[in-house]
Design a binder for these strands. Structure first.
Lengths: 349, 349
DNA sequence: CCGGTTAATGTAACCGGTACCAAAGGAGAT
DNA sequence: ATCTCCTTTGGTACCGGTTACATTAACCGG
């Protein structure tokens, strides 16, 4: 016993930053570390009087249990990760919001990682996977084999807005039918020649929207464009497209892969003297806040719910759910505003 | 030696999820754990041939070092936290974006926590503080004494958009002069009776904007309202204010504490037949994307840079910088748009 | 052929918790 | 008074890495 005290030669305790450990508390309270641990966890195997002594020691030493030690012993991180291509724009923020909200409620911290277009993205994601109990991955941020590797390592993964991968849950929004409803609405308004702006190879979502767009046009007998007008997701990309459109001749409608694109396009068109919706109708996708103020016709997606659902799915897997992977599809909603032209309501009802 | 093998009775290894540890690798490569560790860290104290054997073993066993074990041994988390009142709205997302971008570059993971208005916010933040090497705290999300506690615990803290606290760095944006410039611009346009919407007790920023607003009005000799029209930060809050304004009589200008408020207010006014800027001018703050499309006069703040700077400050502290706390103030910029009335440029130039 | 270096590796003690198992002590039963 | 049984507590082996220190082997000049 005396020896034990000798062994830990208590460095100058003047006021140095000596992190307080559970052993310090135990010594101070005159009990064993096991008892302190039990008191911490609220076990009922501790005598009230003892618990009081321990609590007093904790208070006095200002002890805070190390999350690291705890996690290592419990073999769990109590944290989930979420991976994004990019956090800019209003779209992703909502997903994170929903995710964080639910995760926090479930007692899990949230680690975020935005891959931008860094080459090191794959490594960063793998590293992240080693710090969490579960991982939500948005879109095509990482290669399929990286996701497979993580799944294979035993870390639950849920994919968001991305094609399914063996062994992982997924949540996405409905695109095909929504695209069709956009087209149908436009057709009913008398529009015929439609272009689609966006790059289907960029994301599963865009690919599906393009497919739905083509399908609906084909079914109606209207002219189906052979290819999309390729573009990214930013306002700048929209502006660039505007120039080409004016040069090449305007269609009746430009259906855009997202709102930022559509908004950038509209502004650029206006600057070149093209009236929206007078000369050309424009639609977007996402229903971001700016779309409301710009009067943009668009498709609303429940981004926040998507995040929340991803967090819940992960929680279930981490908690031991071993059922077949789930693949949820959230419904979307056409929001008609001014940018697709005055709707002749009388014409169809 | 034979005994050692007995001791770890290798559970069914059919295909079970037996996490591979550094000791497995060591055994497999026929070296000690120290050597494996050295090989992992890229120490030059490992013979090339040995390194090769170790690498082969790592590859074969698909070994990934546990971040937990590593962090515990190294006594660092390699992660930073960022705390928000709420992640909704375009404003915070930008800060997180800037923060994450820089933190990732510096090799630190990012943990986010949104306190919403949960009662347990304080505990959650304290818990978070135990998982990170440094913490960025936005606005009045947590009480001063909680921040002080964290600082005192030795965790570097940087405050964003919040009054300074002993021992912590801070970054904020300039408010007083910006508010004055808004007022001056409006006065130059001939406006006189101005109201301010927002709750100064809500945030340091709002308090400073209100102060700058009053100061500039007082200096010009114009009438200074005694109190603000209290409101939160959401579009709904703006809509509620609109009703009161119409009932009580309109001023010439309504200066709002942020853009969402201003936008919600404008729409609600329009619905009640009040023209903006014809009957009343409206200004906001933040310059969110929707403000551009709504033509809202506002003040632009470098949110992204604020986040980035916070991340860099934290990094310096974590890396051992012991200099006096820094308090950075970022400059803001008045953005004049349609909502404050046609600017009679000729009048003053 | 030998003491002194230097390179390469092994041993084991941490890091800060959790939890299994054994042990001590008191109450109640016989 | 003795024997169970139950409550409470202590000792200690983990969790999975890092690293100080010891050890061994090879190489050097004299």
């Amino acid at each position: 016993m005396d020896n034990a005290e000798q062994k830990s030669p208590q460095r100058r305790r003047t006021s140095a930053r000596a992190t307080v450990t559970i052993r310090d508390v135990a010594r101070h309270a005159g009990v064993s570390v096991a008892t302190v641990s039990r008191a911490l966890r609220g076990s009922d195997l501790v005598h009230p009087a003892t618990r009081e002594r321990v609590d007093a020691a904790i208070e006095e030493l200002r002890f805070t249990p190390s999350q690291l030690g705890r996690s290592l012993a419990e073999r769990r991180h109590a944290a989930n990760g979420i991976v994004f291509p990019d956090l800019s724009g209003p779209y992703y923020a909502d997903v994170v919001l929903g995710y964080e909200e639910v995760a926090a409620t479930l007692g899990r911290s949230v680690l975020i990682l935005s891959t931008h277009n860094r080459e090191s993205a794959d490594e960063m994601v793998l590293e992240l996977a080693g710090r969490v109990d579960g991982l939500a991955v948005f879109g095509r941020t990482v290669h399929d084999d990286v996701v497979a590797e993580i799944v294979q390592r035993g870390v639950p993964v849920v994919l968001m807005a991305r094609t399914e991968i063996e062994g992982a849950d997924s949540v996405r929004t409905e695109n095909v039918a929504a695209a069709a409803s956009v087209v149908e609405h436009l057709l009913a308004d008398g529009h015929r020649r439609m272009s689609f702006v966006g790059d289907p190879s960029d994301s599963t979502d865009v690919a599906e929207r393009w497919a739905g767009f083509r399908g609906a046009l084909a079914q109606s007998g209207a002219e189906v464009p052979e290819r999309t007008i390729p573009a990214g997701f930013k306002e700048d990309d929209g502006a660039r497209v505007a120039a080409d459109l004016v040069a090449d001749g305007l269609p009746d409608v430009v259906v855009c892969a997202n709102d930022e694109l559509a908004l950038g396009l509209s502004v650029a068109l206006a600057e070149q003297g093209v009236q929206v919706p007078g000369d050309v109708a424009v639609t977007g996708w996402d229903d971001v806040m700016a779309a409301r103020y710009a009067g943009l016709t668009t498709v609303r997606q429940p981004m926040r719910e998507m995040g929340g659902r991803a967090a819940r799915m992960l929680d279930a897997r981490i908690s031991g759910d071993r059922s077949e992977p789930r693949h949820d599809v959230l419904t979307t909603q056409l929001v008609v505003r001014h940018s697709c032209g005055p709707h002749p309501k009388e014409a169809h009802r």
